[in-house]
Design a protein around this nucleic acid. Sequence first.
DNA 1: TGTATTATGTTATGTTGTAACATGTTATGC
DNA 2: GCATAACATGTTACAACATAACATAATACA
Lengths: 168, 168
Amino acid sequence: MAKQKQQSEVESKIFGNHDHGNCFDDAIKQIEIYFIKKKLQFTPLRRKVFEILLRDHKPLGAYEILDTLGKEGHSSSPPIAYRVLDFLIEHGFVHKIQGLNAFIACSNPNHIHSPAFVICRKCEKVAEIDEKKSGVSFQTPGIENFKVEKTTVELIGICRSCSDTANW
Amino acid sequence: MAKQKQQSEVESKIFGNHDHGNCFDDAIKQIEIYFIKKKLQFTPLRRKVFEILLRDHKPLGAYEILDTLGKEGHSSSPPIAYRVLDFLIEHGFVHKIQGLNAFIACSNPNHIHSPAFVICRKCEKVAEIDEKKSGVSFQTPGIENFKVEKTTVELIGICRSCSDTANW
DNA sequence: TGTATTATGTTATGTTGTAACATGTTATGC
DNA sequence: GCATAACATGTTACAACATAACATAATACA
């Protein structure tokens, strides 16, 4: 029992049962600071897209984002979303989950990082973990001469909570 | 010099300068044995799709495969390719490279494995490495309770040979 | 305040993947 | 052998994801 409780608590950190208001505000603050420092424009559109991703706190498809943009007074033609997403990705505030064709706000944009994602295929929650802390290293003999520029690491499976309530 | 030579040899193994005829025949032999053992049908269509992937020995998009199928006397409507690819993937003889929306024949179908891919964005060559041997482990504190079912690991960058001849 | 740069808007189209249903082929028990 | 169930392929139509190309608007800054 004690052990179970403890595991749950650890996992809930990973799967983000957290103070969401806090998380949201922090993220906005961070991106604002970054944009000022880099002399980039944190335009209403960019802010909106980032907010949409932040408030859902789960991966969203580009067309889902577009729908929301449309409902909230912006244009909703595809390039609008893709351009802003590309921009936010480039600056590390958004990641693309390849396995889902979806986008998610970064949980830890403070440093350059190679994120890894843990994705529950049942509840669709996604946890971003730090590649460095995840045992991922890629020091394969033979790729010393390969200059890695970008890594994609995604683990699909079933999270603890879905595993407990599962009927399949 | 000696060191460079040595590195080249190692990398050429990874990037597959190999006896291709041998590799092709081996792969066919393996899949035939597997299909017999599992009482599956290695139909002309499945054989053809697998051969197309084997002979190119690089990732191909579904529609590229379809084109080739069309030229070689098969139907070329999308579901044909996707169904066969799904089937071959399910049995571990083909992998999908998420970052390229493309498919590649497995280099090592003899055992159940979680492959990792090293992809040169210049020459588009892809090396499949064994996750177990690649330092990838995913023993992140906090995901002990997450049941990993499938992993996607892809490293994009520049291979040695492209790095040497590069002008960018 | 004119000009360059950056950002957004719009149309059209390209690419990737699937649903649904029809037809053909193979395995198997009677 | 042959009925029938299971499996495999064929076909049409469309859904989902993404980008090219060009027009207009906003902002930076000399």
